[in-house]
């Protein structure tokens, strides 16, 4: 059983971050993946596509990094509700014997394309914390849900990420 000091974080908001999606960051991202899709690279080509401009690859943002910190090479344009809950939860998990974290996986639902120049905001909450018995002992599964909105306040994507604490 996980102690109450850990489970009390279920349902907690872990912050809102907003960031501009820059062309250079999209290219750097596509380059890192080694993805030559011209929709990410070629302004002329992308301009004539159904998107009308360079787009970001689906998954450009995601857990564990809600919005790439390198995306603007500056601090996010806006941070409200600082994500202290994450730090406090990590401390509580470490105290309960779960000192290491690994990325378990992610589920996305995409609703709108992300275009260069969009300003995205990511709002995350801790949806669930569960203990499971694994091959190497006890593990704590943390489910984090994030909703991404653009500057027109359209829902762009939803993500459900799993962090596994060992």
């Amino acid at each position: 059983m996980l102690p109450e000091e850990v489970t009390k974080f279920i349902g907690k908001s872990i912050g809102v971050v907003a960031c501009e999606v820059e062309k250079g960051s999209i290219k750097r991202f596509a380059d890192a993946v080694d993805d030559p899709n011209p929709l990410y690279w070629d302004e002329k080509y992308a301009g004539k596509s159904r998107y009308g401009s360079i787009i970001a690859p689906p998954g450009f943002f995601g857990w564990p990094v809600k919005l790439p910190r390198g995306m603007t090479f500056q601090r996010p344009t806006d941070i409200s509700d600082p994500p202290e809950a994450t730090e406090n939860m990590r401390a509580a998990l470490a105290k309960a014997g779960f000192g290491r974290v690994v990325d378990g996986g992610i589920e996305y639902e995409f609703f709108q394309p992300v275009r260069a120049g969009d300003v995205l905001s990511a709002k995350s909450m801790i949806k669930d914390i569960r203990e499971r018995e694994g091959k190497t002992g006890k593990m704590a599964f943390i489910i984090i849900e994030t909703a991404y909105h653009n500057q027109k306040d359209e829902l762009v994507a939803k993500a459900r990420a799993t962090a596994i604490y060992l």
């Binding site: 993946v33 929709l39 990094v65 990325d103």
Partner: peptide, 18 residues
Amino acid sequence: GALKRQWLVQLMTDWMGE
């Protein structure tokens, strides 16, 4: 993990086309 995720995203975007 997220890099592997992105490879799989590319698998799909390449296949489904523009």
